[in-house]
């Protein structure tokens, strides 16, 4: 288990916990600011930018998953987080990534799947 582990928020109840709109990882805003999103920082570029954090993450999420073994876990596969770092993920995240991120995804030919379970195929 040499996988990288995301910062685990110290308090589960904390109101300010935020979930990444793209990969659904849950972190505290300060962790997002310090290290960005451990999975999709390349696109989101939240490191050090509170504004970006505001638009790229949300507090409006439902369900918390502790992904302990992403590669083996079906839950992680179902959530499409099995290639991501270990950590806390949200089951459902409300909202869409900012348009620039969406455009970038499109440019790269990556299908954007919002995490609000609106489209399930």
């Amino acid at each position: 288990m040499a996988t990288v582990t995301a910062a685990i928020p110290p308090q589960a109840r904390a109101k300010q916990l935020r979930a990444c709109l793209l990969c659904s990882i849950i972190q505290t805003p300060s962790d997002f600011r310090k290290d960005g999103c451990p999975n999709c920082e390349e696109l989101m570029q939240m490191k050090g930018s509170s504004d970006r954090i505001q638009v790229c993450t949300t507090t409006y999420f439902d369900g918390v998953i502790a992904v302990i073994d992403p590669e083996q876990s079906w839950v992680a596969r179902w959530q499409r987080t099995s290639k991501y770092v270990r950590g806390m993920y949200a089951v459902r995240v409300k909202g869409r990534v900012p348009e620039d991120v969406e455009a970038e995804l499109e440019a790269r030919g990556i299908k954007y799947r919002p995490r609000d379970q609106t489209d399930q195929d």
């Binding site: 288990m1 582990t5 685990i8 928020p9 308090q11 589960a12 439902d62 369900g63 918390v64 998953i65 502790a66 992904v67 302990i68 073994d69 083996q72 876990s73 079906w74 839950v75 992680a76 270990r86 950590g87 806390m88 089951v91």
Partner: peptide
């Protein structure tokens, strides 16, 4: 769920690591 995550990390390199793959709550 958070406790389980932390516990998994804590016990990762012990001789009795948690065997669970994930845990979640709705």
């Amino acid at each position: 769920v958070f406790s389980l995550m932390r516990k998994a990390i804590d016990l990762e390199y012990t001789n009795r690591p948690l065997q669970i793959l994930s845990a979640f709550q709705r």
